Every structure is written in C-alpha cells, then in structure tokens.
Amino acid sequence: MPSFCGVVNCGSTRNRDENVTFFRIPAILHFKHKTNLNELSANRRQKWLNAIKRADFPESKQKDAVVCSRHFISGKSK
C-alpha cells in the first residue's frame, strides 16, 4: 500500500505524519443480484476520483491509491 496521499498538493506520508490515517479509494462492486449496490459503489468511487483532482491518474495507479484523513471534514472516512 502506498505511503503517501494521492491528492494533488498534499504532502502527507505515513512516516512523517503520525496522527494522519489513510483510506483506500472505494472499489466498484460487482454483485450479480444487487445491481443497485454496483451503481452506488461506482458513483462513490467517481466522487472520490473527482475530489482528488488528478489529471495524471491512470487506472493502474488508482487501484492502490489512498487519501489521508486531512481531506475529510471530520478527519474520518464515513
């Protein structure tokens, strides 16, 4: 797992910031019988990617990308 935040202009790292937690970008679910959850997960992931605002963010890097708690209002993922 990466040791740095993927948000543009954020310098948070695991080694330097002890009080910062990191969250993975949500994956898209692929349920066979609960297609509404598949759509919800795809929308949630897209919102995270839009918030990150990275033009140079290929699919291969998105898989393991993380966002630090500094980018959440409460400091926690909901």
Rank of each mutant, 00 (worst) to 15 (best):
N9Q: 07
E59S: 08
K76Q: 14
C68M: 06
V8D: 13
P26L: 05
F4S: 12
N9L: 11
G75T: 00
K32L: 12
E18H: 08
S74L: 14
I73W: 00
A55G: 02
C5G: 07
P26A: 03
R45E: 04
E59M: 07
R14Q: 15
D56A: 08
S12M: 14
S77G: 04
R70W: 02
P2A: 05
N15K: 11
G75I: 00
I73D: 00
F4C: 05
F57P: 08
Q46L: 14
W48V: 05
R16C: 00
G6Y: 09
A51I: 00
V7E: 07
Q62L: 05
A27L: 09
L29F: 08
A51N: 13
I73A: 04
P2N: 05
D56T: 05
M1H: 05
G75W: 01
H71C: 10
D64E: 09
N43V: 01
R70A: 11
C5M: 10
V20W: 10
F4A: 06
C10W: 06
S60K: 15
F23P: 04
V7R: 12
D17G: 06
L49A: 09
K32N: 14
H30Y: 14
N9C: 03
E18S: 08
P26W: 02
L49P: 10
S3M: 02
P26Q: 07
R14L: 15
I52R: 10
T13C: 12
R54Q: 08
I25P: 03
S60V: 13
A55F: 01
I25N: 01
F23I: 07
G11Q: 08
C10I: 11
V66F: 02
H30D: 15
C5H: 08
K61S: 02
R54T: 01
K34Q: 15
K76E: 09
R45I: 01
R16L: 06
G11E: 10
H30A: 15
A51D: 09
P58H: 02
K78T: 02
G75D: 01
H33W: 12
R24H: 01
L29W: 08
K63V: 04
A51P: 00
D64L: 08
E39Q: 11
Q46G: 03
S12C: 15
A51C: 02
K47T: 06
N50Y: 05
N43W: 06
K32D: 14
S77P: 00
L49R: 13
R44W: 00
S77E: 11
V66I: 02
V8E: 15
N36L: 13
E18I: 03
P26Y: 00
G75E: 04
I73L: 02
K76I: 04
V67A: 00
F4E: 11
F31D: 14
G75Q: 05
F31S: 14
C10R: 13
D17T: 09
T21Y: 13
